[in-house]
Every structure is written in C-alpha cells, then in structure tokens.
Nucleic acid binder design. Structure first.
Lengths: 202, 202
DNA sequence: TAATATATGTCAGCCACTGTCACATGACAA
DNA sequence: TTGTCATGTGACAGTGGCTGACATATATTA
C-alpha cells in the first residue's frame, strides 16, 4: 500500500470523524461542509471527492456490512438451503460487530444517534439497505439458478432475514450498547427462524 | 368546502401534474422548481408552500395507502390474530388500487417510473414506507396490548406483511399495468402466508 | 531524473430551499 | 354592503449543497 493510498485513507477518516464530532456537537443541519472541510484543513471541493454528499458520511458501516454478507454468501456450500445461507451471512455481520475496536464502536454509536435524530438521514440509510437487499437477492438467485426478477421466494428469503436486522437495529432500548443490540438481533433472528415453516424456502 | 379550499386543491393538483409531466419529459434532475411553478403560473416560493420539497411530490400515494391500512386495522375485530388483521389491511389497499380512476392510475404509473429511475427518490419513498410501518406497529401493538418498543413479534407481523407489498411492488415485469401488479402482490402475500408456521403470531 | 498519473485548491456558477415583508384575496360579522 | 381579519401569494435577498473546469502540487513509474 503506497504513501498515496495511506494518505487518502487518513484524510477520509479525518473527515468522517471531524464531521461526526461537529454533528454531535451542533446538530447535523447546522453543520456546513465548509466547517467540516475547514477543521481538517482541506478545501470544501475535496470533501466531495471523498464523500458524494454530506449525507453519505453516515452510511459508512452499511458498506462494510454489505461486503461482509456478500463474501460470506459466496463462501457457503452450493447445496445449502438459501435461508440458511442468509442466516450465516447475517451472523457474520454480528460477529464483526462484536469484534470491533472501541474507536469503531464509538463511530457506530454516533452514527446511530444521528440516524435517530434526522429522518432524512434515516431515509438514506434505509435506501442504502434496500440496495444491499437487491444485491443479496441477485447473489441468492444466482446460487439457486433462478431469475431474480421473477422469483418472489428469493426476495422473501432475503427480506425475511434482513427483517431481523432491521427490527433488532431499531430497538430503542439498545442505544449506547452494541453488545446488547447484537444480542437483540440474534434473538429476533431466532424468532424469525422459529416462525417459518420447515422447508418453506425449497 | 369554500372557494379558498377549492382553489388550493386545484393549485396542488396542477402543480403535481405539471411536475410529473415535466419529469417524464425531461428527467427529474433537469427539471427545476422554477419550471414547475412557471408552468402553473405561480411563484417558486408558492411551490414550497404546497410541497415541502421537490422530492415530496412523488410520495403522494404513500399517504393514501397508509391511511387505508390504519383505518382498516381499526375496524378489524379485537380478538383477531394480528397477522390476519394485517393481511386485511393490505388487501384493502389492493382493492383501492383496482378501483382507482384512470387519471389516478396514470399519476401512479408516472410516479412509479420516476421511482425506478431516481435512486434518491426511491430512498424517500422507502423512508416513507418505514414511517408507515412504524405507525402500523404502534396500531398492532395497541391491539395486542403490548409495548411496541419491546415486542419483536409485533414488528415481524407488520414487516412480514409489508414484505409482500415491497416484493410485489418491485417486480420489474409489472411496469405499466396496475392490475398485474396487484395480482403479483396478492400472489406474494399468499406465498408469505404459506411460508409461516400456523399460529406463529400468537 | 524525466514522464506520467493522480490528488488538491481555486473559482465561478446552478439550484433547492428559507425568512421576511408588502400586497391581494377570500371569509365573516355588523 | 362595508369594514375587519385571516390567509394565500409574490418579490427579493440570502444560505448552503453540489458541480465543472482548469491550474498546480504531489506520488508513482520508467
């Protein structure tokens, strides 16, 4: 990894952390891109070369989660029942969350608080999740050898699994504690598993 | 209904239709609010007195669907199984769609095409749907006499039902034909019903 | 070291959106 | 009908997110 890339990564994280701090401190709306760029000594124009929009800052972890799930899915044995594969993909994300560093957790919690307080940001986040679902649907459809556009069952396999994630994530009592949130998602996932008829995804 | 209100309603619809036509004609992004306002002979400032944002134009039907579902839910017998109630709420929306006027359908289809082509709009739409889910969850939780924040099962009842709506709505083969879309959603809903273990929502 | 690729700063500009004030128009009571 | 009040509208100035274009500085590679 060259000097160039290292510098970029550093700038990216600096922008992200500066932005999160400003948002928490003075609110999302009343923080300008100029301020964010200014506090990292970078031109506002450069900010938009790292993040496509001000909103995009807060979707940081969605990208990681999606990557983890797609990779896990690709590694599952070909003959496995599709919903089973999805549960493994989902639990891989949960493991990542448990193993994350304190710095990562702090970022995560800041973002979560922002999502709670800013509906427009929540919109973007959920939109991003839908994009992830679309990609997962394609992956699952490919594994099953069906056309993703014409197979509702594949859609349900993905959507049902992701429901556990959403429901667990939204739980208001878990603010500020990642482990508890992970536990809640795990419980919800088990509830989903119990609610489904055996072999429903054949 | 006084003259004032009638005029407002007329302006509102005029703005909506003018906007949809412009969007379809020259694309969402390259249509400015000035153009929309101009083609209805109204000041740009006034546009924002009718619609909180340019995006907001496209969420027209989400409001109606939500209202229908909440009303239906309120009319269901108290002892009914919660998921059963949700399926009735959902099917009430489907009936509304089948009975809609040609003018309504045309608006609907235009909006759908816009949602397909503009990810940012899709984000807002799905965000609006999540808001609807939240309200439905509250309603269902109230019926069951549980705390909406602490009962994952209630969340799943709503989310599973809405999954049918989303999956059916997104199906790419149904563009341009509302009846076919309604049929697809109905089929998906039945698939959901078959996939769940009897009594899972008790 | 020279040639090339890439990252950044600067500047000019578009457009969504808002606050404010003056004015016009419909609603209502005397 | 007329005066009074509430409400809808236009005009204008301003903020801030975001983009394109060009010049310059900083890595990479030969």
């Amino acid at each position: 990894m060259g000097l160039r890339e290292r510098k970029k990564e550093k700038t990216r994280l600096a922008l992200l952390d500066a932005a999160l701090d400003l948002f928490v401190e003075q609110g999302y709306d009343s923080t300008t891109v100029d301020q964010i760029a200014g506090s990292v000594d970078v031109s506002p124009r450069t900010f938009f070369r790292y993040f496509t929009s001000k909103d995009h800052l807060v979707l940081w972890y969605h990208d990681q989660g999606e990557e983890t799930m797609l990779e896990t899915l690709a590694d599952r044995p070909p003959g496995e029942a599709p919903f089973e594969s999805m549960t493994h993909a989902l639990r891989a994300v949960l493991r990542d969350m448990e193993r994350s560093t304190p710095v990562d957790r702090e970022r995560f919690l800041k973002m979560r608080r922002l999502l709670d307080r800013n509906p427009q940001l929540a919109d973007h986040a959920i939109g991003r999740s839908m994009e992830t679902e679309r990609r997962l649907i394609e992956a699952v459809a490919a594994r099953r050898g069906v056309d993703p556009g014409a197979d509702p069952l594949t859609h349900l396999v993905v959507t049902f699994a992701m429901s556990a994630m959403r429901v667990g994530f939204e739980c208001p009592t878990d603010r500020g504690d990642i482990r508890q949130m992970v536990r809640r998602i795990e419980e919800t996932l088990q509830l989903v598993e119990r609610s489904l008829r055996p072999g429903w995804d054949a």
